[in-house]
Design a protein around this nucleic acid. Structure first.
Lengths: 342, 342
DNA sequence: AAGGCGTGCGCAATCGATTGCACAAACGCT
DNA sequence: AGCGTTTGTGCAATCGATTGCGCACGCCTT
């Protein structure tokens, strides 16, 4: 504070009124001023190392140029590229990003959402909503622009940017069917999340489309998108359907849980059972066997989320677009034709 | 703005002066007020859904309760847990975290550091400094509290929180020596970073301590801490020292580059050559063979960074502490005794 | 019972930038 | 030459919370 020049200092230096300095510094107002004055203001501002005080500007203008994002886990490889892509888009346009963690189990003592709204963020990105989430309602009530990313809610009340989960599962199932599999089972994610729910539905739809039926025993729901949760679900599934030749996991970590379950039972992948994941997380090409999976570009989702949100703030888009990105099948070593004679 | 109550609204509701509301809401000033008034203010604030405007508070008080962190890559599994740990500590104490990416190659058009300082962050965490970095000087000049994390600078002008890189390399070398290896080589990281430099030094010191000599050909420097950069460095090293039985990599990604180089040459790990990494990134226990490595608790580093920074802001610590966390040897499948007869 | 002291609260300035309004100068027009 | 219009700049209010100062009122003391 002591060392930083204010707009008054610049004004005094140039010999003009502070408001003139403010206008000279604003590109959209600059052309209403005389050429020489603008030059002198710019020079003085540069010389004094002037940086506008964001708090003061925010207070008066009502715009903070801050965006908040709430994720379930910053360090999760699904969410960190989203954050990264979002940050890149925002910082290029002068916005800063506040990141907040809200693990699903945490008692949210200090309400993160309220905290961000109290900081008067210009917009909010929610990466942690469940299918029915009151966080969305609250944002709507507070009238703060919000975009959902990765996970959507049932009622499409606000814009979202998600991967086409149903299409992703279709790619996975079609790949396995193409290899000759018919006994295909599914380790599903939490059904309270759109990713878990839609991938489950996508699995069923693709199976039916391939002329294969799906019964309850063909699907096991994991409690979370983690390796730890994937292991028991996979154990259950392999017990219920010992004849299964392929497992479609709702994400890569669950697929790794399947790996462990297979290892426990002495069954080999892909010789005995094929496994396919979802997300194409970093390093899954290095596990053994290299994991076949459905690639989602989380970074791109983050970027598009940023563009969408900035458009909303700028009043560009009136509707509530539901952006859906297309996933890509990545074939590696964990999928192969089913064993002979099965 | 339209929907959010201000301190004046609360004051009017209760029938007191705004300043009284401000004091009633501040726990440290609350006891200077009468009991009934405080209760009525709290009740009214709650009922109106009052949230103090952070911008206004920041403007007047000079404290923004914002902390900035600059990382080379948000999505890098080394840095994302640091961010996560830091955020956890900060949010528990009412601070919010602004995250900014500054990839090493980016022309830093909009100066990220200045942007954060202009936002009047109360403190700054730098995770991307090189051994000699002018960002540190600028923070010192601007008098903004700063803590370095993961990477330190040569001159210890500011506090830092780093892993004991030298000790980590000693653990790695001693482990290999204990297995019987004597021809041990090192894929080093960029020498412009403290992590690269200190691990290289730690390698040499540990080798010397074990009675083994190190010559130039025993070390190859990778251009970056990536798999892509690790591959050529590993190729070079294996060509220079075809008799090497063990490779110590400066981090896990470089170790995976070594895996690829070995595979190219048809040499097997750990049968022909042992490999050990550094960091214990997620999933390196799932690669084949499972990577032996040196575990660093990045999340804990983030947490301690937050505590240190808040102490500095609170004026608690006067010195410039250099916090060093102790790494841990994790033995998995990539290290084994050297082949017989070598 | 009167003066000193402490407590509880209001008053108003302040942080720094933004912006609607007003005003002066300069220009063009008939 | 006079009047209307544009152009360029200053003035002052404003955003919402914080905080030093000061004023009353009530209590205790002698």
């Amino acid at each position: 504070m002591a060392g930083l020049a204010t707009i008054k200092d610049v004004a005094r230096e140039v010999g003009v009124h502070p408001s003139t300095v403010s206008r000279a510094l604003d590109p959209s107002q600059r052309d209403r001023l005389g050429e020489p004055i603008v030059a002198r203001v710019l020079e003085a501002a540069e010389r004094l190392g002037y940086r506008p005080d964001a708090a003061a500007a925010s207070l008066r203008s009502g715009r903070s140029r801050l965006i908040g994002i709430i994720v379930p886990d910053i360090a999760n490889p699904v969410f960190s590229p989203i954050i990264s892509g979002l940050e890149r888009t925002l910082s290029a346009r002068g916005y800063a990003l506040i990141v907040a963690d809200q693990p699903p189990d945490r008692p949210e003592q200090p309400d993160i959402l309220e905290m961000l709204v109290a900081r008067r963020v210009d917009g909010l990105v929610l990466a942690n909503v469940s299918l029915k989430d009151d966080a969305v309602e609250r944002c709507l009530r507070w009238q703060v622009p919000v975009v959902l990313v990765n996970r959507a809610e049932t009622a499409g009340r606000v814009p979202s940017v998600v991967s086409d989960d149903v299409a992703g599962m279709r790619l996975a199932v079609e790949h396995l069917v193409g290899l000759g599999h018919r006994a295909i089972v599914h380790v599903a994610g939490p059904q309270s999340l759109s990713t878990g729910s839609l991938r489950r539905r996508g699995f069923i739809e693709a199976m039916v489309a391939a002329g294969l039926s799906v019964v309850d025993d063909d699907i096991a729901e994991a409690a979370a998108f983690t390796r730890e949760a994937g292991l028991p679900a996979a154990r259950l599934l392999l017990a219920q359907r010992p004849d299964a030749t392929a497992v479609v996991a709702a994400n890569d970590l669950l697929a790794l849980g399947v790996y462990e379950a297979l290892r426990e039972q002495g069954r080999r992948c892909p010789d005995d059972v094929s496994v396919i994941g979802h997300n194409d997380m970093p390093l899954v090409d290095m596990v053994s066997p290299a994991l076949s999976t459905i690639r989602i570009s989380h970074r791109e989702m983050g970027e598009r989320t940023g563009e969408l949100l900035l458009d909303m703030i700028g009043g560009v888009c009136a509707a509530t677009p539901q952006i859906v990105t297309q996933p890509l099948l990545i074939v590696r070593g964990s999928t192969a034709p089913p064993p002979q004679g099965s």
